[in-house]
Amino acid sequence: MDAAVQRQIERDNLAELTAAHEAEHGEFSQAEIDAARALLRGDADGGVGSAA
């Protein structure tokens, strides 16, 4: 399968999962979004709960 098509399928699936989660639990907070972005960028703990 073409890589671009596969990536679009992954994005569509993620959008479905996100919508289902938000329908059940409400919108994601900015802190949750920031933590997810940090994880995607390779920050193992996502910046959540780290001690200073």
Rank of each mutant, 00 (worst) to 15 (best):
D43L: 06
L40Y: 09
V5W: 10
A31V: 05
E22M: 07
R11F: 10
Q6C: 09
S50N: 10
L39V: 05
F28M: 07
Q30L: 09
R37E: 09
G42L: 05
S29L: 08
A51I: 15
A23H: 06
A36Q: 11
A3F: 10
Q30A: 10
D34H: 01
R37S: 04
D34C: 01
E24T: 10
A44Y: 09
A23C: 03
D45K: 03
S29I: 06
V5R: 14
L17V: 08
M1T: 14
E24Q: 13
E10Q: 14
A52T: 15
A52H: 14
N13F: 11
E16I: 12
A44M: 09
A35C: 03
I9N: 11
R7C: 10
Q30H: 09
V5Y: 12
H25Y: 13
A19T: 13
R37K: 15
L39Q: 01
A23D: 08
A51K: 15
A23S: 12
A35Q: 01
E10M: 12
L40A: 13
Q30P: 02
L17G: 07
A38Q: 01
G26F: 02
S50L: 12
F28T: 00
G46P: 00
D45F: 06
Q8I: 11
A31I: 04
G42C: 08
G47R: 02
E32P: 01
H25Q: 11
A51T: 15
E24S: 09
L40Q: 13
S29C: 04
G26Q: 03
A51P: 03
G26T: 03
G42N: 07
F28I: 02
A38M: 01
M1R: 15
T18H: 08
A36N: 08
H21W: 12
V48L: 13
E32I: 02
D2E: 15
L39A: 01
F28H: 01
G47L: 01
F28G: 00
E22T: 04
D2L: 13
D2S: 15
S50G: 07
L40K: 13
E32S: 07
G26W: 02
F28N: 00
R11Q: 13
I9A: 14
D34A: 06
E24L: 11
R41P: 00
S29G: 06
T18N: 09
Q6I: 11
S29R: 04
G49K: 05
D45T: 08
A36F: 09
A20S: 09
D43F: 04
R37H: 11
A38S: 04
D2C: 11
N13K: 10
V48N: 06
A20V: 05
V48C: 05
V48K: 14
D45Y: 06
A51L: 15
V5T: 15
E10D: 14
E16N: 12
E10I: 07
E32F: 04
V5I: 14
D45C: 04
Q6S: 11
E24C: 03
A36Y: 08
D12E: 15
R7K: 15
Q8V: 08
A51V: 15
L40M: 13
E22N: 02
G26A: 04
A31F: 04
A3R: 12
G47C: 04
E22K: 02
G46N: 01
R7T: 12
E27V: 05
A20M: 08
G42T: 08
A19S: 14
A51D: 15
